[in-house]
C-alpha cells in the first residue's frame, strides 16, 4: 500500500510564499477579491503562518506552511453527512466536490483550519481562464475544498509509470508547492516506503506532527530544530 505523505523542513522555509502562488496556479484556486478577502474568505489551500519570538531588538520571525494535513484519523471525515470527504486507500483525505452540499461541518472540525469554502461561484474573467489547469475541476459556489496533495499529479505520475510498465519511483510525483520551493524545504512521497525521501525525513529527530497530541495522525511531517515546537508551559 501507499501512504502519500509530505515533509516540510521549517528550518529551510523562508516564508517567500512561492508555494502559495504555485498552488493557486496548479489547482485553479479562485482569487476572491479585496472585499471577500477582507471578510476572511481568501481561499489559499496553503498558507504561511507567521509567529514572533522574543521582543525587539532580539525578535525573530518563524514561518510555518500549513496545508491539509491529510490526517490518518481525520476529524473532518466522520462529520460530513454526505461522504463528500473521505479517506482514500492511499491515505488522502479526498474531496468529492459534486457530493458536497456545503454544511461546512468538516471545516469546523478541522483543528488546522485548512479547509476553505467557495462562498460564491469562481470568476476567471477571460482570458484569465486560459490558464486554468485542465486536470483540475473549477469548483462551484457552495462547495468546500482544500489541499489535495495535487492528486492530479499523483494520478498523472501513476499513469506515466503504468505506461512505462514500472512502479512509481520516489520523486516521480512532485506537488506544486514542493516543485516551486527555492530552498527545497518540502518533500513528498510514500510514507510506507522506508527508502523514500519523505520517510527518511520523517525519521529525523527534528520531525514532529502539528498538534500531534490530537492524534490525528497527519500525513504531513514538520521538521524543526527549534525549541518553539514544544508546547507552551
Amino acid at each position: 500500500m501507499t501512504r502519500w505523505g509530505m515533509a516540510i523542513d521549517l528550518d529551510r522555509c523562508t516564508g517567500c510564499e512561492a508555494c502559495v502562488v504555485a498552488c493557486a496556479a496548479e489547482n485553479n484556486i479562485q482569487t476572491v477579491g479585496e472585499e471577500q478577502a477582507r471578510e476572511g474568505r481568501a481561499m489559499h489551500w496553503l498558507r504561511i503562518e507567521r509567529y514572533y519570538e522574543g521582543e525587539f531588538p532580539n525578535v525573530r520571525t518563524r514561518f510555518m506552511p500549513v496545508l491539509c494535513q491529510q490526517c490518518g484519523a481525520a476529524p473532518c471525515e466522520p462529520v460530513c453527512p454526505v461522504y463528500a470527504t473521505y479517506r482514500n486507500p492511499e491515505g488522502l483525505n479526498a474531496m468529492v466536490y459534486s457530493r458536497c452540499i456545503g454544511t461546512r461541518f468538516c471545516a469546523n472540525n478541522c483543528p488546522y483550519t485548512v479547509r476553505v469554502f467557495n462562498w460564491f461561484d469562481a470568476e476567471f474573467p477571460a482570458p484569465l481562464d486560459s490558464q486554468l489547469n485542465p486536470d483540475v475541476s473549477v469548483r462551484p459556489g457552495g462547495v468546500m475544498e482544500k489541499c489535495t496533495f495535487c492528486v492530479q499529479r499523483i494520478q498523472a505520475g501513476k499513469d506515466e509509470a503504468a505506461q512505462e510498465e514500472r512502479d512509481v519511483a520516489d520523486g516521480d510525483i512532485r506537488t506544486a508547492c514542493q516543485q516551486s520551493c527555492p530552498t527545497k524545504a518540502i518533500t513528498f512521497g510514500d510514507l510506507e516506503d522506508p527508502d523514500s525521501e519523505v520517510s527518511k525525513w520523517a525519521e529525523s529527530p527534528r520531525a514532529f506532527s502539528l498538534l500531534g497530541d490530537l492524534d490525528t495522525r497527519p500525513g504531513v511531517v514538520y521538521l524543526s530544530g527549534s525549541e518553539w515546537r514544544e508546547p507552551a508551559e
Partner: peptide, 15 residues
C-alpha cells in the same frame, strides 16, 4: 440566487 457568500460567515467562522 447569489450564493451563500451573501452572509457574513467566513473562515474560520463557518457557522
Amino acid at each position: 440566487a447569489n450564493g451563500i457568500g451573501v452572509t457574513g460567515i467566513n473562515r474560520p467562522v463557518f457557522w
